[in-house]
């Protein structure tokens, strides 16, 4: 008897989850109505109360944006690793750089520098940047390129926000951070000022003095470049925040906070090592 009631209650609950009323269920089981009725009323109250628990729209949008960015980054990574095998990457990149220029043409490569994510020329732009970093002569050149590319990412974030493309902002912010952190990493290994091509001062008659002068000069040059880049990037992002649609404002605000923090960290690090 009880087992029968448990089964009927379960069937009725399924019907109620699908929007049917208590009465419909009771009419279907008139013999059990007296026992079933109170249980269905309690169940109805539980259904009503629990269905009132809803995620906030801002939360929903925030997580959605994070997941899209994660998927995008995952996809990019897979595609990149498919395109370029791990072994002999430097050689492949050197060959690729020549091929890219030959096949795509100098004009297209130059035009790709202003391409935005999602556009056909954008992968060419990223490949170009990768090639430039791989072929950079010295760590100071690499650091300069990272500063330049971080600023490009910031401008792309601003553009994407203006276009309401929230899903790419997070991935671009991650790339932005990665460029700035790589400056820090180069600086940390303390090779920044000594490897690669020296400026004329380094080849003067007094090598020790020249090296010190060269180091200070390079650091100052980097510091100025980074400081200008900070100004440009934050200006572009701030401007975008004023114009961006509501749907992208939260991600953009987050990107500005991250950009400010990362620039300050990179500048602090450069200044600390200059002392």
């Amino acid at each position: 008897m009880n087992q029968k009631l448990e089964n009927i209650l379960d069937k009725c609950l399924d019907r109620m989850f699908n929007g049917e009323s208590i009465e419909t269920c009771l009419n279907a089981y008139p013999e059990q109505a007296s026992e079933l009725g109170p249980l269905l009323k309690t169940s109805h109250v539980i259904i009503q109360k629990s269905s009132a628990i809803q995620p906030a729209p801002e939360f929903k949008a925030r997580v959605y944006s994070r997941l899209r960015a994660m998927s995008y980054a995952k996809q990019e990574k897979t595609e990149r690793s498919k395109r370029i095998p791990i072994w002999h990457r430097k050689w492949l990149l050197a060959v690729a750089s020549v091929l890219v220029v030959l096949l795509v043409g100098v004009g297209t490569v130059a035009a790709s520098t202003s391409a935005l994510p999602g556009k056909p020329l954008y992968p060419i732009k990223l490949t170009g940047e990768h090639i430039q970093l791989t072929l950079a002569f010295s760590n100071i050149d690499k650091a300069k390129l990272h500063i330049q590319f971080s600023e490009r990412r910031a401008i792309e974030i601003a553009e994407m926000a203006n276009q309401g493309k929230d899903d790419t902002i997070f991935a671009l912010t991650e790339q932005f951070v990665s460029h700035l952190q790589q400056i820090y990493e180069i600086d940390n290994v303390d090779e920044l000022m000594w490897d690669g091509v020296k400026t004329p001062a380094a080849t003067s008659a007094l090598p020790e003095e020249a090296e010190i002068f060269d180091e200070r000069g390079n650091k100052e040059e980097l510091r100025v470049m980074l400081s200008n880049s900070r100004e440009e990037s934050l200006f572009a992002l701030g401007n975008a925040l004023a114009k961006a649609p509501e749907s992208t404002k939260a991600s953009l605000q987050q990107a500005i906070e991250i950009a400010t923090r990362e620039y300050d960290k990179a500048l602090y690090n450069l200044e600390k090592h200059s002392d």
């Binding site: 009631l5 448990e6 089964n7 209650l9 249980l39 309690t42 169940s43 539980i46």
Partner: peptide
Amino acid sequence: KALQHNAIV
């Protein structure tokens, strides 16, 4: 089903 029934009771 039994747990569900007992819980609702």
